[in-house]
C-alpha cells in the first residue's frame, strides 16, 4: 500500500477568516498552539473529533480542510 499522510489547508482557512492566528484557532478548538503548528506542518494527524472541531470553526466540511493523499500528490 502506498504511503499516505493526512494533509490540510488550515493555514489558508485561517488567512481567509480574518487572518486568524494559530493561538486563536487553538483556543477555539481546545488545544495548544504547538498542536496547531504540528498539525499544519503535517507532523501530527489530529483525532477525528479535533478534525471536526477545526472544520466547524471554519464552517466548511471536513474534506475541504483535511485530505489523505500520497506523499507525491499535491495537497
Amino acid at each position: 500500500m502506498e504511503k499516505r499522510q493526512v494533509r490540510n489547508n488550515i493555514r489558508k482557512f485561517r488567512f481567509f477568516h480574518n487572518e486568524m492566528t494559530q493561538e486563536q484557532l487553538a483556543e477555539k478548538v481546545g488545544v495548544t498552539r504547538q498542536t496547531i503548528i504540528a498539525i499544519e506542518s503535517a507532523k501530527y494527524a489530529p483525532s477525528l473529533e479535533l478534525a471536526f472541531r477545526i472544520a466547524l470553526v471554519f464552517g466548511v466540511p471536513l474534506e475541504e480542510v483535511f485530505s489523505y493523499t500520497s506523499e507525491d500528490e499535491p495537497a
Binding site: T32, T35, Y44
Partner: peptide
C-alpha cells in the same frame, strides 16, 4: 487556561 494537556501531549 493555556496550561492545558491536549490529545497530542
Amino acid at each position: 487556561e493555556r496550561f492545558i494537556v491536549d490529545e497530542r501531549d
